[in-house]
Simulated scan of single mutants.
Amino acid sequence: MTVHYLDHFTLRTEHVDATVSFYRDALGLEEGWRPAFPFPGSWLYSAGRPLLHIASLQGSAAQLETYLGVRAAGDGSGALDHIALRCNDLESHRQRLHTLGVPFTERVVPELFEHQLFVEDPNGIRVELIFAYPAA
C-alpha cells in the first residue's frame, strides 16, 4: 500500500477564464482534455499530466454539488476543493480506513475509469486517493 505522488489539486471558482489564463500564462501550464463531467470546468497540464482541475461555480451549481459535494464558495485557500494522491492497493487502503473508522466515499471517473476514495482530514480538507481501474 503506497502513496506515490500528488496527482492534482482542484479549485472551485467563479473566475474560470482568469484562473486558466493565470496558470497558463504566468505558470506555463497547458490547457488540455477533460472528461465529460456534468459541470463546466477546465484541466491544465504539466509535462503531459493533468495537474490542476478547475470546477466552475457558474451555471450548474446543482450538478457540481451532486458530483463533488457541497462546499462553501471561497477565495484564497477557501477555493481549494481537494487534493489528490496517486496510490496503489485499493483494498489495503479501504481496509485501513475501515479499521480506523474513517468514513469515505468512492466512485469511478467517467471515461478514465480511475477508482477514487474521498476522505476528509481533521481540518475539513478533502483528500482524494486515486487508483488505476480496475484496481489491482
Rank of each mutant, 00 (worst) to 15 (best):
T2H: 15
V3P: 01
V3H: 12
H4Q: 09
H8G: 04
L11N: 11
H15L: 13
V16H: 00
D17Q: 12
A18K: 14
A18Q: 14
A18F: 12
A18P: 02
V20N: 14
V20Y: 06
S21I: 02
S21E: 12
F22T: 14
Y23F: 10
R24E: 15
D25F: 05
D25A: 00
A26V: 14
L27M: 14
L27H: 14
G28V: 08
G28L: 13
G28Y: 10
E31Q: 14
E31P: 10
G32I: 08
G32V: 12
A36H: 00
F37N: 04
P38D: 10
S42H: 08
Y45W: 01
Y45K: 12
S46M: 06
A47C: 03
A47Q: 06
G48R: 01
L51Q: 08
L52D: 13
L52M: 09
A55M: 11
A55V: 09
S56D: 01
Q58T: 03
A61K: 09
A62D: 13
Q63M: 03
Q63L: 05
L64Y: 00
L64V: 00
L64R: 07
E65S: 10
T66E: 08
T66D: 06
Y67F: 15
Y67C: 14
L68N: 08
L68I: 08
V70W: 06
V70P: 02
R71H: 10
A72G: 11
A73T: 08
G74H: 08
D75G: 10
G76P: 01
S77H: 06
G78I: 14
G78S: 02
A79P: 03
L80S: 01
D81L: 01
H82V: 04
H82R: 06
I83G: 09
L85T: 00
R86H: 09
N88L: 07
N88G: 07
L90R: 02
E91C: 00
E91S: 02
S92G: 03
H93A: 15
R94A: 13
Q95N: 11
L97H: 11
L97M: 04
L97N: 13
L97Q: 10
H98M: 02
T99A: 11
T99Q: 08
V102W: 04
V102K: 05
T105Q: 04
T105V: 05
T105H: 05
E106Y: 06
P110R: 12
L112A: 08
L112C: 07
F113C: 15
F113K: 15
E114G: 10
H115D: 07
H115Y: 15
Q116L: 01
L117Y: 09
L117R: 13
F118R: 09
F118N: 01
D121Y: 14
N123M: 03
N123L: 01
G124N: 07
I125V: 07
R126N: 00
V127E: 02
F131P: 00
P134F: 07
A135Y: 10
A135G: 13
A135W: 09
A135E: 10
A135H: 11
A136P: 03
